[in-house]
Amino acid sequence: MAGTAGVPEAPEIPEERPRARRRGRTTLLIAGAAVLGVVAGTCTGYLIQAEREPTKLASLSQPTPAQTKGPAPEPLSAAQDRRVKTDGDLRKLLLPKPSGVKTAKWLSSVDGWLDLPAYADTYAKPGQAFGSAISDEFRRAVSTGWTRGQADFEVRLTQFRQEEALGAAAVTSGNQSWAADESSTRSWPVPGTGDGMAYVHDKPKTRAGYLPQYYAEAYAWRGDIAVMIWVYDTKPVPKKTIMDLVERQMERL
């Protein structure tokens, strides 16, 4: 029967389900006998096992395997294991200063080493750079530099722990993005690096009272080390200059 408008219809009452058939007495007696049989068998098994001699368990400690005789193997050389080279004195992997140049007095490194605060202080926003370096798992950094005429050169190697992320690759990619965004910029891939790049900026930076400053830069990475190279001059920096520096530095890694 249809319900009145606005009032829901009452649900139909389902038919009562048929009750389950009760088990007969014979079925219960058979089931009870089966249960008693299982219990009796289990008890008999326990009694038999209790009269047996205990089985001796095998020893948990195993004999130490015999060591092979002969001299211990020689450790891998730096040519065979790259970590032998990169875990040592990182300054030895830096490009050597050319002959006849002046040592740079403007470097932030102390005896070639850059600790984390000094590393962050080389950026325009040191506080932000400090936090980013921690996130990137900064391990250590070294740098060298020199002055030849009016040109200044700096080569920096930054090493990362790379336990949670590929810090060297990430930092290189970020630096490349900043360099590529500069106006009047030409760029070239660095041979043998996969994704290393070199940049020459044809538009100089100018400040009142100062000579115009042209510059070039290069960024690449290998393993856990990021390579950063800068050249500043009062005249345009040739492509050959920056490419020669980054290629020779990558060969040392």
Rank of each mutant, 00 (worst) to 15 (best):
T4L: 11
V7W: 08
P11W: 08
E12N: 09
I13H: 07
E15K: 10
E16N: 07
R19Q: 13
R23V: 15
A33E: 01
G37Q: 01
G41K: 01
I48P: 02
R52M: 11
R52S: 13
E53L: 08
P54F: 02
P63Y: 03
P63W: 02
T64P: 05
T68D: 14
L76V: 02
L76C: 00
A78L: 07
R82I: 15
R82P: 10
R82M: 11
V84E: 10
D87A: 09
K92V: 08
L95C: 04
L95W: 10
P96G: 00
V101K: 04
A104F: 09
A104Y: 06
S109A: 12
A118V: 01
Y119Q: 08
A120V: 09
D121E: 09
Y123Q: 11
Y123S: 11
A124M: 05
A133M: 12
D136L: 15
R139H: 12
A141S: 14
T144D: 10
W146P: 14
V155S: 12
T158S: 11
T158K: 04
E164I: 06
L166I: 01
A168Q: 03
A168C: 06
T172Q: 14
S173Y: 09
G174S: 02
D181Q: 01
T185A: 13
T185W: 05
S187L: 01
W188D: 06
V190S: 04
T193R: 05
G196Q: 06
Y199D: 03
K203N: 11
P204A: 09
Y210P: 03
Q213M: 09
Y214M: 05
Y214V: 06
Y215A: 08
Y232D: 13
V237A: 07
P238L: 06
M243C: 03
M243K: 01
L245Y: 06
L245R: 00
R248T: 13
Q249T: 07
E251K: 08
E251N: 08
L253I: 10
